[in-house]
Design a protein around this nucleic acid. Structure first.
Lengths: 195, 195
DNA sequence: GAGATTTTGTTCTGAATGGAACAAGGAGAA
DNA sequence: TTCTCCTTGTTCCATTCAGAACAAAATCTC
């Protein structure tokens, strides 16, 4: 990897592998996939695959990290004025990457990725919670996290919400679903803060 | 080109270029396209493109030749029992490659390819016409081609029919449209044979 | 129609890739 | 268990390719 992802070959391979991966997940489910299958569909050599990825999990990991990076950028550009807007931005992000998340979280997805997604969300919630002007949940989260399990619980709730939303053809707008789930999350944090 | 199209790189590039080409034709029309545009969309280097193709016409030519080759195989497997079946097979072929022909013959297509297609069809008709057990048209064609312009006229009619069929979402089955146009062609040849 | 901009088509070199072969590790069947 | 069969992950080398640069041709503007 000399000039990493500026390279046309690298970008092309990423694109081909991602498309092949999503196609195959939708067809046969993530867990059933083999590296051989993915590279055959993507028309990429085994040599090239292992030069860039450890295994199929690493492939997903890199795709996911790129998506999360885009999300964090979008959240960052939001400023810290309207904390509740974060979740709108978040669901807008989910909508943009709908195919990715639906494939990986849905019935053909993988428990592994569901956990991975929950972990990422927990991190986001905890970090935002510590922030002075964080989202709605900040007042509750800033109590010191005697019970770290509440953020984990909320993140699980978010993941379930995302999955439901995507599998039902997104019946609400990002703003609507964000508002709903943010209220539920607030209620949880409020309750927990009284402990 | 050591082992030509067995090569993964070559096959991949063909696929990428074809998809990019069809996308771009549908978006902007064939005539407006540049090689630079096609290779950028296909994520293929200029070097690689010119290693395999002369220009954008050559790219289409190679795609078309491959399609024609598949058609001739299908026609060949048909045997010479039922001459009229040839045109059914022909329209079935058109249906399989519908996106290709629609892009190239339709409003976003190119006069150049329309002529190319007519030429290919004329060749097919004339060749079949000479055949002892050719299609319906054989009896008229075997008169000796004092008027070669009739096959050219019929091939133009076929191309128009194909274009209409594809641009109207194929309202008839291949068999239906083949039957109709074969009858029209027969009428033309019959008339011409009386000259 | 003249000048500016884009596109073409070629060349070179370093770098990435494909193919093949391989041992090791599962997974499944007899 | 033992025997296949498939997949994994690595290695090697020859081949192809990407990138850059370029002159010439074509196209676009004014």
């Amino acid at each position: 990897m000399t000039q990493n992802s500026a390279n046309l070959r690298v970008r092309r391979m990423q694109k081909l592998l991602r498309e092949a991966l999503l196609d195959l997940i939708e067809e046969r489910g993530f867990d059933a996939l083999t590296v051989s299958e993915i590279i055959e569909r993507a028309m990429v050599s085994r040599t090239a695959f292992y030069r860039h990825y450890q295994d199929k999990y690493d492939l997903v990991e890199q795709i996911f990290e790129e998506a999360m990076s885009a999300l964090l950028n979008a959240v960052g550009e939001l400023g810290q004025e309207h904390p509740a807007e974060i979740w709108v931005t978040f669901f807008e992000h989910i909508a943009v990457y709908a195919r990715l998340y639906r494939a990986l979280l849905g019935s053909k997805g993988s428990p592994w990725f569901v956990r991975r997604m929950r972990a990422a969300l927990s991190g986001l919630i905890k970090e935002r919670g510590r922030h002075p002007h964080g989202p709605d949940t900040s007042s509750y989260l800033s109590h010191g996290f005697s019970n770290e399990f509440v953020p984990d619980l909320v993140s699980a709730m978010f993941v379930e919400t995302i999955t439901w939303w995507l599998e039902h053809e997104r019946p609400y707008t990002p703003r609507e679903i964000a508002t709903k789930v943010a209220l539920l999350a607030s209620a949880l944090f409020k309750e927990a803060s009284t402990w």
